[in-house]
Design a protein around this nucleic acid. Structure first.
Lengths: 128, 128, 128, 128
DNA sequence: GTGGTCTAGACCACG
DNA sequence: GTGGTCTAGACCACC
């Protein structure tokens, strides 16, 4: 599980970390219970400020994706169930917006759902 | 087509405007060729600064959603076809992230696709 | 010689008129001494404001491209020799800027000159 | 790399900044990877408003000439390859117009190409 | 420290 | 009356 930062991107670095961890969990690259690198370690090897990495970990913890143990550091949470409805309201809203863009771009519902299915299955099986 | 701003939101106001216009076009509330309110008009009635509205319009124009006629003002572009693949790379990436979140939240592919379908059809037929 | 306006363009309409007349003269579509349409006529058939057409004609006259006669209207000037150096300073400057863009885009001098030659010969022989 | 503004010019200040940066890159005065002055710094030393400088930087970023690193600031992009054809459509059009002006001014194709070659090589080797 | 965003005014080019 | 541009200040997110 190697993080790749894009310092020229408009999405903040702490969010890039958060997003990559989330996708790592979803893809199976990060297994439940697996230990994440130390804040210091990750900061050093990526050239990122420790404050930034800390912010990302705080966010991931708050969202329930990881758990932090004072002794052993951070590890991937097991059996995460975040929202009762299944998806955070913010993500629902983002999904509605993307659907609107797709509709304007001329995609039919079927075509859009194919893209969605592709997005769902794309991150799978990175560990063969 | 009335815009509702959330000044407490963390998404910038100019993006809120942009997003609502996009969703308005997708839902049919804004028809191709229809004129948008003047920058000044929208600014006045919303209590937003002109520059902010201007920024939103510039973005929408740049993305091809609206066109500004030198004589009159801004109007919804007709027959928008933005990306060859159908969806902007940024939106594809956002979709992949949402799919990851859904997967971790325990949604099966079918459940996720139902959410996507709902997002696609949710904004329809505001004008019966 | 038909003018085509782009009301969504960012170049002012009066400049679009001016530019098309200039290109018309260069291509031979407009011959020296040939009469241009009346301000009113051009305004009517194009849906442009008379003030705008007038502004374009004033500019063309000031630059020496056309001559206006109170009786017969405007006509293309004959044997135009504008700048001693050959090109207006403004156009020289624009050319330098374009050359810079070309250089950054990776074009060699030869490639750039091929583009220039193409631009020079492109507008020719519209009247076979 | 010092910028010189002409406040009396009819070309907007933000475009003057943009153009000078482009010419600076082409001439080699600005090397790929080199850091550009901060928005605030440039605004202060030039007596220009921050927002204006910001607009210029946004444009340069959008055109791919510079990149903004979240950590430090703006720097010249390396290995810029913007348009597949080599030159932006807008610049092609401008070039055609200049060629027309040259033709009317009585310049032969060779004379025009000499001007073009001069424009291409004029900004070179400011750093011996 | 940086850029991103927003405000409240103003002037001008354009049509 | 329209958008385009600019100013002088301010707050905030990010690093």
């Amino acid at each position: 599980m190697l993080l790749r930062m894009d310092f020229a991107s408009e999405t903040p670095i702490y969010l890039q970390i958060r997003n990559q961890v989330v996708q790592g969990i979803a893809s199976g690259a990060l297994q439940p219970g697996e230990r994440l690198p130390t804040i210091r370690a990750l900061a050093d090897e990526s050239g990122i400020n420790m404050m930034t990495v800390n912010k990302a970990y705080q966010l991931l913890k708050q969202e329930g994706y990881i758990e932090t143990d004072r002794r052993s550091g951070a590890k991937v949470a097991g059996g995460v169930r975040l929202e009762p409805g299944g998806l955070a309201p913010r993500s629902r809203e983002a999904l509605r917006l993307i659907a609107s863009e797709a509709k304007i771009a001329g995609l039919s519902e079927d075509q859009f759902l194919q893209l969605c299915a592709k997005a769902y299955t794309s991150g799978e099986e990175e560990r063969p």
